Simulated scan of single mutants.
Amino acid sequence: MSKAVEIVEVAPRDGFQPIGPWIPTETKAAFLRRLAAAGLRRIEIGSFVSPTAVPQLRDTADLLEVAARLPGLRPQVLVPTARRAREAVQAGARFLVYVLSASEAHNQSNVRRSVAESVEDYARLLDALPGDVELRINLATAFDCPFDGRMAVGPVLELVRRLVAMRPDVEICLCDTTGRATPDHVAQLCAAAAACCPQVANWAYHAHDTYGLGLATTYAAYQEGVRVFDAAAGGLGGCPFAPGATGNVATEDVVWMFERMGTDTGVSLEALLPVAQDAAALPGASAGGRARQALGPCAAAEERITSLEKSAR
C-alpha cells in the first residue's frame, strides 16, 4: 500500500459551522486561497443546509464560485438530504458528501429522520445524481453517539454493507463524531469494514480531539490501510447536534505526525501554520491542537537562542 496520505481540510465547514459571530464571505474566501496555497487539494468548503439551523454556512454557494477559480482544488460540500444535494448541484457543486448517522438518536437530532429514512433518501440521491458528480458518504457516530454511547461494530458494519451495495464506488468516511473513540475501536472497525466490503476503493477517517486522542485514532486508522483523513486547521470544530463534541484533529498536527513518519502529505507545514494560527484566532472559534504552539514564533525564537548559545561555546 502507498505510504502517502490525502488530507481533507474541513475547517471551512466543520470548523466554521459552530462559530456564532458571522465570518465575512471574503474572509472565508481568503482562508480557502491560503489553504490551497499550502498544498491542500481537497477542502470541504461548506454545506447546503438550512440557514436557520446553521447560519454560518449560508454563503456556501458563493464560496463554490471562489473555489472554482483555484487551480487543482477539489472542493466538496456536505449535504444531509437528496433535496439539498439537488440545490448543491444546481449551484455548481461537483463533489458531494452525504451525511447520515449510524445511531438512531443522533440521526434524529442531526437530520430529523430515522436511519432507514436516510438510507431511502440516499437511494433517491443516487437515482438523480449527474454522472460528473463525485460522491462520498460520511457515516457519523460510527464509533460513539452522544446519546446512545459506544456503538457496537456489528450494526455499524451492517449499515455499511447496505450503503455499499447501493453504490460500491463511493468513498466512505467513518466518523468519530464525539471524539470518544479509542485507537483499538477505530482499528477494529476499519479492519472489519475493509474485510466485509473489499470493493470499496477509498476509506476515510474523520477524527475529533475531544479527549486528546485524535492523532492516536488517526494513526490507528492509518495502520489498517486508511489513506484519506479529515482534519481542520487550528483544530476548529464541534457538532451543534452532538453535545460535548469539541474540535476536529488539527491539520497541522496531522501533517506534522505523518511527515515525521516519512509519509508524504503534499502539504507545506510552513505555509499551513500561519493559516492555522489565524483560524484559531477567529472570534468565537473553539481551537485545539499542539503543533502551532510547538512550532510557533516562541519555539522558533528558542531555537535561534539555542543555536546562538551553541555557537558561543
Rank of each mutant, 00 (worst) to 15 (best):
L70G: 00
G289V: 08
G237M: 02
N107G: 09
L32R: 05
I45N: 04
Q108P: 04
R33W: 10
E44R: 05
A299N: 12
A279G: 10
Y219K: 09
T177R: 08
R83V: 03
V133Y: 03
T218R: 06
V119Y: 07
T306C: 13
R13F: 03
H106L: 12
R84S: 15
V164N: 06
E302N: 14
S47D: 08
L163H: 00
A216V: 06
T265G: 11
E120S: 14
R227P: 01
P155G: 10
E117Y: 06
R304D: 14
Q223D: 07
R227L: 07
P80F: 05
Y222K: 01
D278W: 11
Y211I: 07
G288S: 13
A102L: 13
M166V: 07
Y219L: 08
A30V: 11
L157E: 12
C197V: 02
A245F: 01
L57A: 03
L135S: 05
V267D: 10
A280N: 07
G179I: 03
D184W: 14
C190I: 08
E9T: 06
L157R: 08
A165T: 01
R42H: 13
F229Q: 06
A93M: 07
R136F: 07
L32G: 05
Y222W: 00
A82P: 12
G20R: 14
I172G: 03
V79T: 09
G234M: 09
R86K: 13
Q56H: 02
H106G: 12
F31R: 10
L96E: 10
L273N: 05
G214R: 02
L295C: 13
E65C: 11
D144R: 03
L157M: 10
A93E: 06
E134I: 01
L189V: 05
H106N: 11
Y222S: 12
A38K: 00
W256M: 09
V49A: 13
A68W: 01
I305M: 15
F143Y: 15
T246I: 08
C173W: 09
F48K: 00
L78E: 02
G247F: 04
Y219D: 09
G234V: 02
D127M: 13
R180N: 13
Q277T: 12
V49E: 09
G288N: 11
T177C: 05
T60L: 13
A300P: 06
T306F: 14
G247W: 02
G179H: 00
V89N: 06
G262P: 07
I19H: 13
I305A: 15
L135T: 05
A93Y: 02
D253V: 02
P55S: 04
T81S: 15
A291N: 00
D14P: 03
L100D: 02
D62Y: 08
D62G: 09
S50Y: 03
S109F: 12
V119R: 12
Q199G: 06
R304M: 14
C190K: 04
V228I: 13
V54Y: 01
R124D: 07
L189Y: 02
A93S: 10
M151N: 14
Y122L: 05
F143K: 14
H106V: 01
F147S: 00
T182F: 14
C239I: 04
A245L: 04
L126C: 04
T81A: 10
E270H: 09
L139C: 08
R41L: 06
A30W: 07
A30C: 01
E26N: 10
G72Y: 08
L32V: 11
